[in-house]
Design a protein around this nucleic acid. Structure first.
Lengths: 337, 337
DNA sequence: ACGCGGTGATAACACGTGTAACCTAGGGCC
DNA sequence: GGCCCTAGGTTACACGTGTTATCACCGCGT
């Protein structure tokens, strides 16, 4: 299927031949091996030869010899699609992990999970793997562990027994949202539930948190369904004035749905936050310039990055950290609520 | 520095021992090698043993033997930060490339380029590399080529002689923007120039295209500087009414800057598009729900994905495609302009 | 008895690298 | 001279896999 490679890469043997030394010497020089005694003259000859041949060590061979694989952190791509503060945190992780000698590799195949996915990820023999709890059940964990992965960190909304877990309790979002709105004097709230199957699990938990807090504080919480199209909220927005217990604030699943909701309200002649407040979550980049700017609930991206990277590096050196909780959620006060 | 690996991964030798056969037999069975005569009985024994041990082939060793490296497409991470339609295109590429037996790996180290970067990327021995022209000069190209990379595609705003190039001519954005606004009857335009060094090159070219088209069509084009903070446009927005030749439309570098501009105009009491139209670019996800929704100029993400993937696969089988031009830009008509 | 074809499995090499163990020449010291 | 010591290398093995020869066995026909 493939055409033959046009160029065969130079090996350390080629460098050795050109420099007139042994292969071992080449390896010593290029890796700055301490304790190896190499004269300044041959050292220079080797470096020159390597430059001349554009020598690049073969990672596969190197990793094989080191009895390891990709020396770094493997992240399956879907993790990156979370958006908002999470994306920002991952960008920070990618930067800092490279500095810490643990370069990050993203495996961009979206559609694998479970044991099948674990087999693919494990074949790279990474030092560390960061993956969603949902995509990594107990058998998959076992596959990764037996493949020698030193640090396996699962990210999910609830703890699981089979591996160290970074718990990002989704109910806290809902609780915090309700509490924040209650503190501003709102008594009648609406929960805008997203009809998107890919986030169904998270959405249900955020909603549960909101319901729990509303019950505890004695507030009403209407349930409304929506999707990414503003028209899905048209009926609700139109009927809003006639509702006998019309809400004064609406909670969206995240900022993107908040945008959509604000749009839908605007299209029916309502103004945010004058007529109704809208609260988002996850602090998407656009929220600070949206009209109105969107008040949101999120963790601090830098704290999250530090937490994840710190946990992983501690696991790599042998510690077994207990359950880790996400950084505290904070309300980022803007105009919409 | 690292603790010893807790588990040594099972090798094909372990599987062979457990199944009571030779290592070669294991390899034949697990790779479904055609032409190898294996009885149904031993085949089953081998598969059972592999399952029992959670055997995962070592990618490094496999790639070393195959005289290749990462069998896939390597993308340095900064390419993914383009945003908008480009991000959408890359998501499509990641999906389709995996289906085509060319899984995509993203190398998430942002701060490398040139020969240094090329050395790192080349060490993975990928089949294909997709990288920005800016990050890959002639010497870097040579390093990659000599490392056996079969398909090297550079993405940039102008063609370069040293490697196949996907040209995304940034001037077309500016031209198209001006033409589109002219067709709607605008005579006095403003170019909102972003003061962000990371996109300086692109911004200058988009601006040049706009200036060229404005001159050709006999329109005026005011130059205004801005950054990500709406306050950077405060003075301009305030002075807008007093300008003797006040513009009726403003062109932003991309949708994100359009959001900021709309925000700044709103903050000084101006309304978009009633008082002034604002045109964006690159079709960011939020643009369709923004208030007002943002009219934008972008290529079609699916067309771009097909183009890139098609070019790369043709290069891999040996063809040398000529210069490739990006798909045509289209105006996505919304409310802001 | 002997070749012969076919079935089923194996021995052995190659891929490129890192490193522990070993070698050699020269010089100083008794 | 005999001995140790050191600088400056080299030899040889291991890592885990894919694949090409090669081998053992068995039934069959002559």
């Amino acid at each position: 299927m493939f055409a033959p490679r046009t160029h065969k890469p130079a090996t350390s043997g080629d460098v050795a031949r050109l420099a007139g030394v042994s292969r071992a010497t080449v390896s010593f020089v290029l890796n700055d091996k301490q304790g190896a005694r190499i004269s300044e003259d041959t050292r220079r000859r080797v470096q020159l030869a390597a430059e001349e041949l554009n020598y690049t060590p073969n990672n596969s061979a190197r990793q094989l010899r080191r009895n390891g694989g990709v020396e770094g952190l493997l992240i399956p791509a879907p993790v990156l699609g979370f958006g908002g503060a999470m994306d920002a945190a991952f960008a920070l992780i990618a930067r800092h992990s490279a500095d810490a000698g643990l370069p990050t590799i993203v495996h961009a195949d979206h559609d694998i999970a479970g044991v099948e996915g674990a087999r693919v990820w494990a074949s790279y023999r990474p030092e560390a793997v960061l993956v969603e709890t949902l995509r990594c059940d107990a058998p998959a964990t076992e596959v990764l562990r037996r493949a020698g992965v030193r640090a396996l960190l699962l990210m999910g909304s609830h703890p699981v027994p089979h591996a160290p877990c970074l718990v990002i309790d989704q109910r806290l979002y809902g609780q915090r949202a309700v509490e924040s709105l209650a503190a501003k004097g709102h008594h009648r709230l609406a929960w805008l539930h997203p009809a998107d199957s890919s986030i169904a699990e998270f959405a249900l938990q955020r909603r549960a948190g909101a319901q729990e807090a509303a019950a505890r504080l004695g507030l009403s919480l209407n349930l409304v369904s929506m999707d990414a199209d503003p028209r899905s909220l048209k009926d609700w927005a139109r009927g809003w004035r006639d509702a006998n217990d019309r809400p004064t604030a609406a909670i969206a699943y995240d900022d993107r749905f908040a945008y959509t909701a604000i749009r839908a309200l605007f299209d029916t002649g309502l103004s945010v936050p004058r007529d109704i407040a809208v609260l988002g979550a996850d602090d998407y980049a656009t929220s600070s310039v949206f009209l109105p700017s969107v008040t949101t609930i999120a963790f601090n991206a830098e704290d999250m990055a530090d937490l994840i990277l710190g946990t992983i590096t501690r696991m790599i050196v042998g510690e077994t950290p207990p359950l880790v909780s996400a950084p505290p959620l904070k309300v980022i006060q803007r105009e919409s609520a």
